[in-house]
């Protein structure tokens, strides 16, 4: 049994310790957000956060997550109560097939936690490891900018003492 925290919950996983985290999440823990795209670290469809850093879960053995915090797109919000980035992606209708999007959102989440107001170049740079085949890039960029702007707007609002 490997112990780890998944989306804030203490979890035990029975898979072999060398099993890539991707299959543990999808097949054992029933978390389908992370997707198999290449298994090679080339596409980012499997991106999750390990502690605060984005990782390719297809290349991360379960063992490497032992005792650490794993976050997936399920941890950011639900269909009924989507999180900030998810709301921004919905507002921009930033998906076609959507298969790449959970990976995009997790990588964007790491970026915004590190750098709350990234410029366009910084967003492109951060998302560079992730592929989208449908060509949704322009909307993905808009969605990340929107989430950043909303967060900045709220922060400014708090500072100015407005409700």
């Amino acid at each position: 049994m490997t112990r780890l925290m998944v989306n804030g919950l203490a979890t035990e996983a029975a898979s072999e310790p060398q099993t890539p985290l991707l299959y543990v999440l999808r097949d054992e823990l029933g978390l389908h957000g992370a997707k198999y795209g290449c298994g090679l670290g080339q596409c980012g469809a499997c991106t999750v956060l390990l502690d605060d850093a984005p990782v390719f879960s297809c290349l991360t053995p379960l063992l490497a997550a032992e005792g650490r915090q794993v976050r997936t797109v399920e941890g950011l919000g639900t269909e009924q109560r989507p999180g900030r980035l998810q709301r921004a992606f919905i507002a921009e209708q930033a998906a076609q097939c959507g298969y790449c999007i959970p990976g995009m959102i997790m990588r964007a989440q790491a970026l915004l936690e590190r750098e709350p107001t990234p410029d366009d170049a910084a967003i492109r740079d951060a998302l560079q490891p992730n592929l989208c085949r449908c060509g949704t890039h322009i909307r993905i960029l808009r969605a990340v900018r929107r989430a950043a702007a909303e967060a900045a707007g709220e922060a400014a609002g708090e500072k100015a003492g407005t409700p």
Binding site: D27, H32, E74, E79, P82, Q86, Q93, Y99
Partner: peptide, 29 residues
Amino acid sequence: RSWPRVDIPGKLTGAPSYVHDLRLPGMLH
């Protein structure tokens, strides 16, 4: 009118949305 797409919220939150996500009892790989 631009209705928001009905399939997008589930896809962004990890709801099973694809045949890839189908898990049936007793399923083998």
